[in-house]
Simulated scan of single mutants.
Amino acid sequence: MRTAVALFAATALLTAGATAASAAQFVGLGDSYAAGPLIPNQSLNPLGCLRSDKNYAHLSAAQLGKSLSDVSCSGATTEDMAASQNVTPGPANPPQLNALSVSTQTVTLSIGGNDIGFTSIIENCASPTPFGKPCQDKYNSGGVDQLAARINATAPKVAAVIQGIHTRAPSARVLVIAYEPILPETGSGCWPQVPLAWADVPYLRATQKRLNTMLANVAAANGARYVDTYTASIGHDSCKSSSVRWVEPLIPGNTAAPFHPNARGMAGITPTVVAAAS
């Protein structure tokens, strides 16, 4: 068994050395907030990842003059960084960390939202009326904030991903990207454009901020740099008009997925990413 492990390790090192010279300088990792679902033009490799050639990794790498390998994939969790991710249509997206090498100089990472159940939270918190607090009734009753607990449980997983990046790309600057604000910085939202009950909006706004705070703390503790694209995006949330917002509401007015960044949002946060990478 030890001989087999040693042989595997040696083979991996040789493979890494052989491919390093041709490896990309900039590697984009992460979930749909990195990939840019439905933003034209969409990659066919694989189509199921819903990856745009106008996402912030593409735009940032171009501005920095660096070669890019963007392997981000909608629906990705921390587990999909080191394991293949099944997508529809396929084929599967390979482990995202495979894109890294000793030649990698810059890595961007958007991850954690799917670990806490982003899609199911949106679905469960959507309300047919602006009254009541159905989201808090589901996730924050009995004195236990389930979403806060999920965020806490995700922290060591994000830390492991960052450490995995350092192992494979020891010279790279690792940038952990914040999630852009879905909701306005103040107030009770914009039901029905974003169909969340008025009383639930502050809770969900605080939850997204808690997620970003966790990412900032984990980045700082693991030799990475947190990129505060949340602050850079304030005033461009999904309650704004279609010509102003960077994140789309339930019914998009721009070509992008609901509750995800649009092309304007990707372009809008790119200067913040480029500054952090420089």
Rank of each mutant, 00 (worst) to 15 (best):
T3E: 15
V5Y: 04
L7C: 15
F8L: 15
T11S: 15
A12S: 14
A12K: 01
A16K: 10
A18F: 14
T19I: 02
A20F: 11
A23V: 14
V27L: 10
L29A: 14
G30I: 10
G30C: 14
S32F: 13
Y33E: 01
A35W: 03
G36T: 08
P37A: 09
P46I: 13
P46D: 13
C49N: 07
D53E: 06
N55T: 05
H58L: 11
A61Y: 04
Q63R: 15
L64D: 10
G65P: 07
G65A: 15
L68P: 08
V71F: 01
T78Q: 12
D80Y: 12
A83W: 15
N86Y: 13
G90T: 12
N93D: 04
L97R: 01
A99V: 07
V102W: 09
S103H: 09
T108H: 00
I111S: 02
D115E: 07
D115Y: 01
G117A: 08
F118N: 08
N124S: 14
T129M: 00
P130W: 12
P134F: 05
G143R: 11
D145P: 00
R150T: 05
R150P: 00
A153W: 10
A155L: 10
P156K: 00
K157Y: 02
A160V: 04
I162T: 04
A169F: 12
L175K: 06
I177K: 10
I177N: 09
E180C: 00
P181A: 07
P184R: 06
G187I: 09
C190G: 11
C190I: 01
Q193G: 06
L204W: 04
T207F: 06
L215E: 04
A216I: 03
A219C: 09
A220F: 14
N222M: 02
R225K: 09
S233E: 06
C239K: 02
K240I: 00
W246Y: 08
L250Y: 04
P258H: 02
F259I: 06
H260E: 02
H260Q: 13
H260C: 05
P261N: 14
A263F: 07
R264V: 08
G268C: 11
I269Y: 01
P271F: 05
T272I: 11
V274K: 01
A276L: 03
